[in-house]
Design a protein around this nucleic acid. Structure first.
Lengths: 144, 144
DNA sequence: CTCCTTGTGTTGGTGGGACCAACACTACCG
DNA sequence: CGGTAGTGTTGGTCCCACCAACACAAGGAG
């Protein structure tokens, strides 16, 4: 492998974005094998944790743009992993609910992600893993 | 802000990719103000640090695909920040060199990035910054 | 009750970054 | 000499993040 400019490797912004590239490859490879994408997991997870919700709510909870939620929920509905029905109490709003198939898919993806975390953090001892998570959380919280 | 599913926030892969989103916003906002993009910086930095190079070399050093180097170098050449001439010793190969304007642009972008690092790591004391950088480097090295 | 603001779903489009396949061509090595 | 590896280039794909605009519904202020 060729040498990388020190200007890049010295910068936390480089470390984070480059590491994110590898993480995304790991995650999306795993998800692709299960016929899914990142947005799908986020939405299924939000539905499981907070129950049925409108698309706008899902978007806010998952950090996904409204317009992208439309597409993702549409795909999940086609796969039968989600039900999308008009909210009876509200003319325009939709009510998205998790189906049995959706729950099964969520569990499958959880297993994928567990393997990814293990692979990702392989070089770090337990204590360093906790430290890394803590620092990342701290920085992330500051930018939200 | 709405609550994010715990399934997501608990996972290092989420922390890294989400933080990377914020980082990229900071960086690309700064670069856009200078009329540039991430690929430009990488290439200028590699040229400054290792001297003139072929496009293939640049791609390997900057972790950019050959085909994307073509476009980026083309843009840099149009901006006069880089010279692209055929390598005299090798029919097909190009020789890319940094110009004065390119060096000035590189310095400008360095300033942008310095501000970004400061902004990014604002919530962390000096020691935690070093720890974070060390851990990120360690994990990143393992995946290359 | 009407008007205005807010929220919602939806369409359609942009952009960056990371890739891949294929081709034409050159250099180099066995 | 012939095959292999390297190079530049074209032209795609994909995911994720984001924006603008529209149509419509709900709810509060006057």
């Amino acid at each position: 492998m060729d040498e990388i400019p020190g200007r890049l490797t010295a910068k936390p912004s480089w470390l984070i974005t480059q590491l994110a590239v590898h993480v995304r490859r790991l995650v999306s490879d795993g998800f692709a094998a299960a016929g899914a994408r990142g947005y799908h997991y986020r939405i299924l997870a939000a539905l499981h944790e907070f129950g049925p919700a409108s698309q706008a709510e899902l978007g806010r909870r998952c950090r996904v743009d409204r317009s992208d939620v439309v597409a993702a929920v549409g795909q999940l509905a086609e796969l039968g992993q989600v039900d999308r029905t008009p909210d009876p109490d509200h003319g325009r709003r939709n009510r998205v609910t998790l189906t049995e198939a959706g729950l099964r898919q969520l569990r499958r993806m959880d297993e994928v992600l567990d393997r990814v975390q293990a692979d990702l953090l392989a070089p770090l001892p337990e204590e360093d893993r906790r430290t890394l998570a803590r620092l990342l959380k701290q920085v992330l919280a500051h930018h939200e």
